[in-house]
Design a binder for these strands. Structure first.
Length: 514
RNA sequence: GGGCCGUUAACUCAGUCGGUAGAGUAUCUGCCUUUUAAGCAGAGAGUCGCGCGUUCGAGCCGCGCACGGCCCA
């Protein structure tokens, strides 16, 4: 058996078994629909034509209706297209609802209007098919504006039925795997992704307005840097080169600051080889930006302003509720040091902070198992994650992060063990992380060496040594502050989504299982 | 990684004590030219996630696996 033989045959087996179960030749509904499609084709009907010209969208028609003098006998002619989402047939006439991107409209198809032949064909279309309809609008008895079909044609035959009209598609697994069905059946889903796009656009507009340049830096990096996280590995065949999907764009953006781009940002995907949960997807969207001559303190103020701008622009208010929590973005936001938060909100006696052993005992007593042996900073942040983070519902900046867990941040001028760094929490989620940048190449080298030691001691998330970045730093980086914002989580907050999967169109799921 | 829950018709869900597999929607047939969760009459539709076990007999009980959800780590 070849090296791949076992896997190949196993995968093939899995695939074929599942294929048989899922692509249901046995499903009566699908079989019937295929037969209908074939019957239509046999009658000379083209099942997938592309020559229908649309003159108006549903939204166009709504606007037309909204005009003051649209009369019941309006004679404007519309050529419209969409997917049939409801159908009520009466033998020689039928009402249907069809949907395009802009909305949904009722149409009335009468044998008298479209002719006998066309009506015979129409009787063979199903919910889920795309159709083109030409006609005029009128109001029904109940006052609903309706397209009276003068002509109708099939634009695309669907051979699988849509989910049930009343309950829609509920099964979360199917919703994510077949997001197209989710989008067709559950209107709120579309709104989330429309709002997501608006939020990202508002961030972009704000930063552009402030003189930032938008860039794209490598997704595939020879040395993954800019965060403490486990990367995905890949390989470039022609170059014979190991590469990593980026865990952050940080070191490249800072190279650009060195290159004279004083204000720079990127909105793009990061990849972290970690567990999946309601707040973690292995690929997620990060907004990262850097401003020369700014400090972490400036960025906190900047972040408040930017968040208020985005929220106001997209939702018309700066307060909202997230999962029942009232969250108000009006400033100024609370600022606490890590230690203050741990003692005031976490209930940890401050005398424990410098005693690693007692900290570990305390963690154990709270049922918090610390897997990362070693560094005190890691223990503190772990305790913070469990005891404090969930309590930070109102926007809160946490500052005072120790150097050992902030290898890229500038030391605090007043306390060399601390960094000029903050993290932002809203709704119990970590939303942003920013700091004054470390631009002393000698200190940076020392920090990398410390990290390398941690890596040798088994910390897979420790930062890699990056000589090329040190080289860049030696050419001089101006005093700079930078920040990363977790876009998905911010979208979660603003769309009241309980899981990150609700704001990512195609969240990562394990292989096939329909 | 651990715990709990789920997986039954295309979809949403019932399924009692272990004893022939159910409903609504969708589909099919018939009637119906202003309905809108259209209506009326009838019909078809299932590898009960997968495997093994217990049992005369398993959708149901036990074990294992897969996928998903929630919580914890």
């Amino acid at each position: 058996m070849t090296r791949y033989g076992k896997w190949a045959s196993k995968d093939f087996l899995n695939f074929s078994v599942r294929y048989r179960c899922t692509v249901d030749e046995s499903s009566e509904v699908v079989r019937q629909r295929r037969e209908k499609a074939k019957a239509l084709a046999d009658q000379g009907v083209e099942l997938y034509p592309n020559d229908f010209k649309v003159s108006h969208s549903v939204e166009d028609v709504r606007k037309h209706i909204g005009k003051k003098d649209t009369a019941a006998d309006d004679s404007t002619f519309f050529a419209m297209a969409g997917r049939i989402v409801g159908l009520r047939s009466f033998g020689r006439a039928a009402f249907l609802h069809f949907k395009d991107y802009t909305g949904q409209l009722q149409a009335y198809v009468k044998k008298d209007e479209v002719g006998e032949d066309a009506y015979e064909l129409f009787k063979q279309v199903d919910i889920g098919d795309f159709i083109g309809i030409k006609g005029t609008i009128f109001q029904t008895k109940t006052g609903e504006w309706t397209l009276l079909a003068k002509g109708i044609c099939l634009l695309c035959k669907a051979v699988r039925p849509l989910p049930e009209k009343f309950h829609g598609l509920r099964d979360p697994e199917k919703r994510y795997r077949q997001r197209y069905l989710d989008l067709i059946m559950n209107p709120g889903v579309r709104d989330i992704f429309i709002n997501r796009a608006r939020i990202i656009r508002a961030f972009r507009d704000y930063l552009l307005e402030q003189g930032f340049l938008e860039v794209e830096t490598p997704m595939m990096q020879p040395i993954p840097g800019g965060a403490e996280a486990t990367p995905f590995k890949t390989f470039h065949n022609a170059l014979g080169m190991e590469l990593f999907l980026r865990i952050a764009p940080e070191l490249y953006l800072k190279r650009l600051v060195i290159g004279g781009v004083d204000r720079v940002f990127e909105i793009n995907r990061n990849f972290r080889n970690e567990g999946v949960s309601s707040r973690h997807n292995p690929e997620f969207t990060m907004l990262e930006f850097y401003a020369a001559y700014a400090t972490y303190d400036d960025l906190m103020n900047f972040t408040e302003e930017m968040f208020r701008f985005v929220t106001q622009r997209v939702f018309g208010a700066t307060h909202f509720t997230y999962q029942g929590m009232n969250i108000d973005l009006d400033g100024p936001w609370r600022r606490l040091t890590l230690k203050e938060a741990l003692s005031d909100l976490g209930g940890i006696d401050s005398s424990l902070f410098n005693d690693r052993k007692r900290l570990l005992d305390f963690a154990e007593s709270k049922g918090i198992h610390i897997t990362k042996k070693g560094r005190r900073g890691k223990i503190l942040t772990k305790l913070f994650d469990v005891l404090v983070e969930p309590k930070l519902t109102e926007p809160t900046f946490i500052t005072g992060y120790p150097v050992e867990i902030s290898p890229l941040a500038r030391r605090s001028s007043s306390d060399p063990d601390m960094t000029e760094r903050f993290e932002l929490f809203i709704g119990g989620y970590e939303i942003a992380n920013g700091f004054s940048e470390l631009n002393d190449p000698i200190d940076q080298k020392k920090r990398f060496l410390d990290q390398a030691k941690n890596r040798e001691e088994g910390d897979e998330e420790a930062h890699y040594m990056d000589e090329d970045y040190l080289l860049a730093l030696e050419y001089g980086m101006p005093p700079t502050a930078g920040e990363g914002i977790g876009v998905d989580r911010f979208v979660m907050l603003l769309t009241d989504a309980p899981s990150i999967r609700e704001v990512i169109l195609f969240p990562l799921l394990k292989n096939i299982s329909y």
